[in-house]
């Protein structure tokens, strides 16, 4: 990841604590500013407190689902870019989520390099959109 993109603010949302911790650590050492939330509801509160550039959002969570959370996030900040994480049994929904406006999807278990590339692309898209507004 290029130097200019260090300090990119990432919000990581997943109900699996181990996944949250491990991924946050891996992103943190690469210079990202990571905040985490273990539910859609908690993530929405953080959208106000520490607005992220890119959200990495699990689709299947108890309480608010990933897609419900996504809709609310876009209402709060239309420019935020969201990458959805899906499992092997819910992958069929990825297209619907893309049509709704998510940036991209990744299947679990994730490859950290793939996640980095997608975050980088999502962040570039967000910055370009912001400048063009």
């Amino acid at each position: 990841m290029e130097k200019k993109q260090r300090g990119v603010k990432i919000l990581l949302v997943d109900d699996e604590e181990i996944f949250l911790e491990a991924t946050a650590r891996q992103l943190g050492v690469r210079g990202f500013k990571v905040t985490t939330a273990d539910s859609g509801e908690a993530a929405l509160l953080l959208m106000h407190d520490t607005p992220p550039d890119v959200v990495v959002l699990d689709q299947q969570m108890p309480g608010m689902s990933g897609s419900e959370t996504f809709v609310e996030m876009k209402r709060i900040n239309p420019l935020v870019e969201v990458i959805i994480l899906t499992g092997n049994t819910s992958v069929d929904n990825a297209l619907e989520l893309l049509k709704m406006g998510t940036f991209d999807y990744l299947m679990k278990p994730i490859n950290i390099d793939d996640l980095l590339y997608k975050i980088e692309d999502a962040y570039t898209r967000k910055m370009l959109n912001e400048k063009q507004q």
Partner: peptide, 16 residues
């Protein structure tokens, strides 16, 4: 699962 994953990857990326 391979069929679903492959079809989804193709649909999503063509859509993109």
């Amino acid at each position: 699962s391979f069929v679903h994953t492959g079809c989804t990857s193709i649909s999503v990326n063509v859509y993109r």
